[in-house]
């Protein structure tokens, strides 16, 4: 599994995700500057968190128009793997590669805290090392993580099993109190129809070392390491 990490101006968790990827995949990811368009040899494209272009127009809107995103879309169309975290998730929705949008947090404040996520399906390349229904902790740090889609889209996502993770309480309950940013149906992460593109708001890459408070996020990267490359 060869991973590449796309770096837009203003992205700031590229080193964090590189550490997590190297820890599980055993080799450093290639860092891909946003002007590059050749993704040859990359099996997994990762778009990390941060504030691409300052988030000044709308989170992810400018980056979605960047040259590299055409190549990322082609990569996905060929059945390649794509992971977008936080700003990366926002960029994927802005690029039309995942449904829905990320709105301002319901409380209109930046939220930096630990949340709990429930694994909605464990049969994807991103979640194979988790168990279905497993609850794990993940730091979140965003101002615009309030997942929104129209009811028909939400029903379709649910029906097709494309909800990857939900915000839950410690017991795994889908509660309002656990849904800190106000996301529709507590959705924290969604998958593409072919299950090969994942976007999520929280940061599993920041919980892959006991020193930093735990390894709850590590199975996501271990999952990617476990699969062979088609």
């Amino acid at each position: 599994m060869h991973a590449g990490v796309v770096v837009f101006p203003g992205i700031n968790r590229e080193r964090d995700i590189a550490i997590a990827l190297e820890g599980s995949l055993g080799r450093r990811p290639r860092m891909i500057w946003h002007r590059e368009t050749d993704l040859a040899g990359v099996d997994l494209v990762v778009i990390p968190g941060g504030f691409s272009y300052g988030d000044y127009l709308r989170c992810g809107a400018m980056a979605a128009q960047s040259p590299v995103m055409r190549a990322v879309a082609d990569h996905a169309a060929r059945g390649g793997y794509v992971l977008g975290v936080c700003n990366g998730f926002q960029i994927l929705t802005e690029a039309g590669m995942l449904p829905g949008a990320l709105l301002r947090n319901a409380g209109l404040r930046f939220l930096s805290m630990e949340c709990r996520l429930r694994v909605e399906r464990a049969d994807t390349v991103f979640s194979g090392a988790y168990a279905r229904g497993q609850v794990f902790r993940a730091p979140m740090a965003h101002g615009d993580g309030n997942y929104f889609a129209d009811e028909a889209t939400l029903d379709r996502l649910e029906g097709e099993g494309l909800v990857a993770f939900r915000y839950v309480d410690a017991a795994g309950g889908v509660t309002g109190a656990a849904n800190l940013n106000g996301s529709a149906r507590n959705i924290a992460g969604v998958l593409s129809a072919n299950l090969r593109v994942l976007g999520l708001m929280p940061h599993p890459e920041n919980l892959v070392d006991p020193l930093m408070g735990g390894v709850d996020g590590k199975p996501l990267f271990d999952s990617l390491a476990a699969i062979g490359v088609a």
Binding site: R13, R109, S112, V208, D209, M212
Partner: peptide, 14 residues
């Protein structure tokens, strides 16, 4: 206050 500051970016916060 802390909940509005990103305290984990960088991945080195012990």
């Amino acid at each position: 206050i802390w909940d509005q500051y990103d305290g984990t970016v960088g991945g080195q916060t012990v």
